[in-house]
Amino acid sequence: MPHDHSEPHSLLPSDPELRARALETILVQKGLVDPAALSALIDTYQNEIGPQNGAQVVARSWLDPAFKARLLADATSAIAELGFEGRQGEHMVAVENTPEMHNMVVCTLCSCYPWPVLGIPPAWYKSDEYRARAVKEPRAVLAEFGVALLAGQKVRVWDSSAEVRYLVLPMRPAGSEGLNEAALAALVSRNAMIGTALAGTA
């Protein structure tokens, strides 16, 4: 597009709230968007699809070795066993933290994220700062998040550059023996499944 011609979006109000309203009005008037569908989409990602889904996957993997084996072999199918599948989770890979290896996930080019298990990515994951730094200085980033690595533990960063989506399986915390799936899931935060926290921490 030549630089002497404005991009079409400049025809809309520049204030983002007014811009959203204008876009909605235009699209609804033209019969292209159903306002009730917008509400349903927002409600789904606000209330139904979120990190509680991924936490259930992780808790199940801690309790059921056969499930964990399936999850590491074919995460998309294993996660679908729990009913979580669809948009932005079409090709899942689960990566397991061990005393030797800590995994963390980023998307340096945009904001790719496993929606069916973690929902909509948080603002920090989409921030320029995380996208810029996670690949070059993951240890500094982890320290900033308060993650203490074990002695000798290596770090592996997964940059989601295609339609493959990564779920980190954090290590099961000591002292969690005997807890049921729901209690274990409560120990698994969103950040722990991105790799910027450990299980059992907020």
């Binding site: 606000q46 980023v106 080019l109 320029d128 070059k136 998040f145 969103r190």
Partner: peptide, 18 residues
């Protein structure tokens, strides 16, 4: 953006979806 210099990461514990 990968590898560019950048500052502190904002709102790391934020739980608000929108």
């Amino acid at each position: 953006l990968g590898g560019r210099p950048a500052g502190d990461i904002p709102e790391k514990d934020d739980a608000v979806v929108f």
